[in-house]
Design a protein around this nucleic acid. Structure first.
Lengths: 125, 125
DNA sequence: TAATTGTATTAAATATATTAATACAGTAAA
DNA sequence: TTTACTGTATTAATATATTTAATACAATTA
């Protein structure tokens, strides 16, 4: 499924949240598709079910998934969430751009790096 | 001097580190200029001297300052650190660019936001 | 009925951050 | 030399967040 990065200082449940968000945004998980159960994710990642449950609860609070007791957790329609995500990324981008300016990086250098980051993925388009 | 953001989830000592790094990169603190003492910073920010000491120790480890017992802590020549900082920002930029791509943000939208972030500061140049 | 699902609860363990209270050694100035 | 300031180290207590552990219960499905 995916693996955890134990060098990452952030809590495990946040990594789990991010991985599932990515899978949904990338279409690996489509709308109404079933997510693996809390217990199976816990077993696969060798972490506690409570930690997975915390991630799922947060994903549901944010509108990424919906859960039905006895049935499972399912990917929600995330089309309405794109704007929220876009705003968050814009905030992060402003923060790093401010840091770049402070560090004496020119606009040209910054945009060059940004373009590189955008292009360097596996070509899916 | 500066203030702390208690809404920030990150530890206080990290904020202290960042603020001093910024002051040095912006030239507010010049090479060999004396930083305020551990105890005075602690008093001004109403935090424990140990917390400031932790920030100073990390700043010294990273090469931003040097400390002399009995004299004080001083801004180091940070010219050789710019590259390290540039690489770190580049890594962050790639991460956020990847997230943007996953979120379906086009290259044009991303670069537009990035440029905005770079320009929106008080005009010091 | 049996097995699986999400969910809730309580407790313990673990890690990290922060404060508190000292102490020591080096520097500078009175 | 004494006094007051520096950085540095140590130990303990406190607070908070994270993670694990061990259950339990209700709903669903086969």
């Amino acid at each position: 499924m995916f693996i955890l990065d134990f060098r990452d200082r952030r809590p495990i449940y946040e990594q789990v949240i991010e991985r599932f968000q990515e899978m949904m945004l990338l279409g690996v998980l489509e709308t109404d598709e079933k997510l693996p159960s809390v217990r199976s994710v816990a077993a696969e990642l060798s972490i506690n079910p409570n930690t997975v449950q915390r991630a799922y609860a947060e994903l549901e609070r944010q509108g990424y998934i919906y859960s039905v007791k006895g049935k499972g957790s399912f990917a929600a329609d995330i089309n309405s969430l794109v704007d929220v995500r876009r705003e968050e990324l814009c905030r992060q981008l402003e923060t790093i751009a401010r840091q770049a300016k402070i560090s004496g990086i020119t606009k040209e250098e910054f945009l060059k790096d940004a373009g590189g980051g955008l292009r360097k993925r596996r070509e899916s388009e």
